[in-house]
Design a protein around this nucleic acid. Structure first.
Lengths: 207, 207
DNA sequence: CGCCCAACCGGGGTAAAGTCCACTTCCAGC
DNA sequence: GCTGGAAGTGGACTTTACCCCGGTTGGGCG
């Protein structure tokens, strides 16, 4: 008990990411984005990415854990901008409007976002382990607004989860991103999804 | 132009599945089910299944196309029973009750079903190509009932799609099937999902 | 009953995800 | 600066989904 604890831990975190590691991550993300738009997401391979980035395959896996992790990382950068708009942009998407209006606006924005990034969003899905609900800003946001508009119904949290599923499920799970003629125009489908999202939200909030 | 067409095609289909092929399919499904409950779905391998069934790997792929196809086939058999109950069972799940009540009952039954078959349902998901919406009896059924209860809102079809996503998404996409202690009890979550499904449906149908 | 050919079978081959571990590099504390 | 050890790196290795194609067989038809 005579020894002193080495107290001075700079942050609560175990450790910061090392400088070279951060540099490699940034570079990998760069190269990955480039490869996605050049070859399509399904042609992006771990070996390919490693080679083109001039790094070892082990490095790629250490940074992203899994193939889906790469696309998740790419999507995350876009998501940051999106979150920015939601949290501190102008109403009704940002704060300052009634909860119901914000929910409707959020749905519209979210659908636009997903439609624009369908490929990444789907590729970032990892069969095997589910989407971590805990750190989903979407769920958090919907839960909050719903708690404001319908405190009773929002209590258990599952309603918010179902609403998020209603919002994201059609694009992540069901809809084809098909290019073949005769397929429904994605723009039109997006429009319809926005309209029925509004019906859904206004109904639930006693519109 | 003198030759006569060989008209007598017994069915509109190109051809029936050959007898030995059908036998092999049945056998494979049998062995697969056995392996799933013995080893868990993620330990079921194409080679393993082939070997244990005493067949070639090529045969397995020819029959099921893809790894996910196996689980899809397994799930399909259960799904048949489920559909049976929905289409011709006693009300309110079967016909004979008002549309809203049938929707609520359908949600409850569907959630029970998915909770019971979570592993298969998730394993049958194929990253790469989305769930085919066209031949989804669930969507068809919800669309029908919704058209009965809210013809105006159901018109575009997207609302039904979103409701199905609200029903299946939480289990297929978001919820952990985790066994670790401290995790939410799946039974309790199921109960909550059923309750908020009811809120959702009754709201949309002007409850 | 035997012919014929499309459907079917088998299993070796390929590609890509993910694991492992010996080696290298960063950086906090002296 | 120097140094100890934690963090990071590379690439061979393993595993597995999925492709391919030469050989086999079921079953409609003459």
């Amino acid at each position: 008990m005579l020894s002193v604890e080495p107290v001075a831990l700079p942050l609560g975190r175990p450790r910061e990411e090392r400088a070279d590691a951060a540099r490699n991550r940034a570079h990998l993300i760069d190269v990955a984005r480039q490869m996605v738009e050049e070859l399509g997401a399904d042609k992006v391979t771990m070996d390919g990415l490693a080679e083109r980035a001039g790094l070892g395959k082990g490095t790629v896996f250490r940074r992203f854990g899994t193939r889906a992790g790469i696309f998740h990382a790419l999507l995350d950068e876009e998501e940051k901008h999106f979150q920015q708009r939601v949290m501190s942009g102008p109403p009704p998407l940002g704060p300052g409007a009634p909860a119901v209006e914000r929910l409707v606006a959020f749905g519209r924005a979210r659908l636009d976002f997903l439609l624009e990034h369908t490929v990444l969003a789907r590729a970032s899905l990892d069969t095997g382990q589910p989407v971590p609900v805990n750190d989903s800003p979407s769920l958090f946001h919907v839960q909050m607004l719903l708690g404001e508009a319908r405190p009773d119904a929002a209590a258990s949290g599952t309603l918010a989860l179902q609403l998020v599923a209603a919002l994201e499920g059609p694009i992540l799970l069901y809809l084809q991103a098909s290019d073949d003629p005769g397929a429904p125009d994605p723009g039109a489908v997006g429009h319809d999804l926005i309209a029925s999202w509004q019906v859904l939200v206004e109904s639930v909030c006693q519109g």
